[in-house]
Amino acid sequence: MPAIIEVKNISKSYTRDSFAIPVLNDITLDIEEGEFFCLMGPSGSGKTTLLNLIAGIDKPTSGNIFIKDTDITLLNESSLAKWRASNIGFVFQFYNLIPVLTAYENIELPLMLTHLSKAEKKQHVEAALNVVGLTDRMFHYPKQLSGGQEQRVAIARAIVTDPLILVADEPTGDLDKNSAAEILILLDRLNKEFKKTILMVTHDPHAAEKASKIRHLDKGDLI
C-alpha cells in the first residue's frame, strides 16, 4: 500500500515569553492508505500537536507533510481551508457541535461549502445519519442527545463530505465505556467498510485495540 500521509522531519516549537518550547522533534512518519493509525503517549507528549499538523490546522516550525503528493506545509491559509474541506474529516474529544443547529443541520454544515444541490445534500446527510444510526434523532438538538449520540453526530459531520482522511483526537475521551465501545466499532466500520484512512489519538489502550498500527509519542519523540 502506498503512503497517503508522509511526515518528513517535522519539528514544532511554541514560543512563550521569547523562549522556544520544543513540542515535536524531527518526526518522520508514513501512514498508508486505508490504515487505522493510532497515536498514543502520555499527556503533553505532542499527540494533538502532530494530529493538528497533519490535518492542516496548524503549521510546523520546520519539515514537510505530504498528503497524496500535496505538500500542505506550503499552502497558504485559504488554500489550506479549501484543502481541509475536501480532504479531512474531524472528530474531537468534546464533539464540538453547534448547539443552535439540529443533528441534521450540524451534519449538513460542511456541505454548505460545496456546490451540491439541495436534493444531493439531503441524500448525503441522510446517508451519513444512516451510517451512524441516528436517523430517528435528526431533528434533535445537541443538548437533547447523549454524549455518545453527540459524538456519532460529529462523526457523521466528519464523513458527510466523504473525505480522504478521518482524524480523531481522543474521540472516546469524554465517554462512558459502552458509548466509547460503540464509537470505536463505528470508526472500525468506517475503516473497513468505507475504506477510510483514520488517524486517531488516544490514551485508552482499549481504543487502540481496533487500530491496525500503533505508534507512541514521548516528549515530542516518536518511539
Binding site: A55, S78, A81, L109, L113, R157
Partner: peptide, 14 residues
C-alpha cells in the same frame, strides 16, 4: 470562540 474554530477547521473562510 470554539464554534468559530470548528467552522474554520471544517473549511469556512474568513
Amino acid at each position: 470562540t470554539r464554534e468559530y474554530a470548528v467552522m474554520k477547521t471544517i473549511g469556512f473562510s474568513g
